[in-house]
């Protein structure tokens, strides 16, 4: 910069014949003026941002806006300066904080702030320490419980979408009920003719089941029989395996399945037949099923 012509303005002068309003002209020399540090701290009144007025609350820790004596450059640390004594007499607020409306502050402005300051003046009583810790503790417990609850709900929801819960339909004694591609009727549960002597604690039961096909697809039951279980009152179940299945299932023609199942001896006359449309549903115990009264 120093080697440039100080008179260079960077603008081509217009031809002398055409005088223009922007014809550059020499600036009159100005006297040196101090720019930095500013001669005095800017008075707060020059701020365009409304600064909330601090009421006569207890003294804040940090004394903001120290007002240096007029004319003296402010060069101390910004906040460390001690609060200056209120200038005698000439101070706009005098001793009373809201003594009036100096500098032409609108009356409404002052009234509003005075009203806001009023409730703030009441100091809230500090919460007892025990109550505070208790509140934090129960807050933490409640949040943790809510988090786990949401996760658990999500997991259950997904599990149920994959394997729908069982819908058991109770069938009265001797009645027929549809399930899958056939209608089913329990003819009876009786002691099987062959009992194993090695296992005196359990008995073999023979279950006679009548199936009436509803459609052509029912013939699949001849080689993939429905999932059959014997269940006691407490929800324990035992496998009932097909020992004899019909050769063919024609729509409308009753056919008979014979199943065998081993159950504990004491439960022989309590267990009930539970039927699922397939092996898979029976294993997972999900979806529609029939439970036959005895």
């Amino acid at each position: 910069m120093s080697d440039q012509n100080p008179d260079e303005t960077g603008v081509f002068p217009p031809p002398a014949a055409e005088p223009s309003w922007f014809t550059p002209s020499k600036r009159p020399p100005r006297p040196d003026a101090r720019v930095w540090p500013p001669a005095e701290a800017e008075p707060r009144a020059t701020s365009t941002v409304p600064i909330p007025v601090i009421a006569d609350r207890p003294l804040p820790r940090r004394q903001a806006w120290p007002t240096p004596p007029p004319g003296a450059p402010y060069d101390g640390p910004p906040y460390a300066a001690p609060a200056p004594a209120p200038p005698a007499g000439g101070a706009p607020f005098g001793g009373a904080p809201f003594g009036g409306a100096p500098f032409g502050v609108p009356a409404g402005f002052e009234a509003e702030h005075a009203g806001a300051a009023q409730p703030a003046r009441r100091r809230r009583r500090a919460m007892p320490k025990a109550a505070k810790i208790g509140l934090q503790f129960f807050g933490a417990v409640a949040l943790a419980a809510a988090f786990l609850g949401v996760r658990g709900y999500d997991a259950i929801h997904r599990f149920e979408a994959d394997s729908p819960p069982a819908q058991v339909r109770q069938v009265a004694k001797g009645r027929q009920a549809p399930l899958g591609d056939a209608k089913w009727r329990l003819e009876g549960i009786a002691l099987a003719t062959q009992q194993s002597p090695d296992t005196p604690d359990r008995v073999m039961l023979q279950i006679d089941l009548e199936a009436t096909a509803l459609n052509d697809k029912a013939k699949n039951y001849a080689f993939s029989p429905p999932g059959a279980y014997l269940a006691d009152k407490s929800g324990r179940t035992w496998l009932a395996l097909v020992s004899e299945s019909p050769q063919d299932l024609k729509p409308g023609v009753p056919a008979r399945f014979t199943l065998l199942s081993a159950v504990p001896k004491g439960l022989a006359d309590q267990v009930e037949l539970v039927l699922w449309p397939g092996d898979y549903q029976g294993k997972n115990q999900s979806g529609p099923s029939l439970r036959f009264d005895r």
Partner: peptide, 19 residues
Amino acid sequence: MATPPGLVPDAPPLPPGPP
């Protein structure tokens, strides 16, 4: 500088706080 009367008054000097 000729400052127009601003919106915000200068901070009132705070009264001496409680000891």
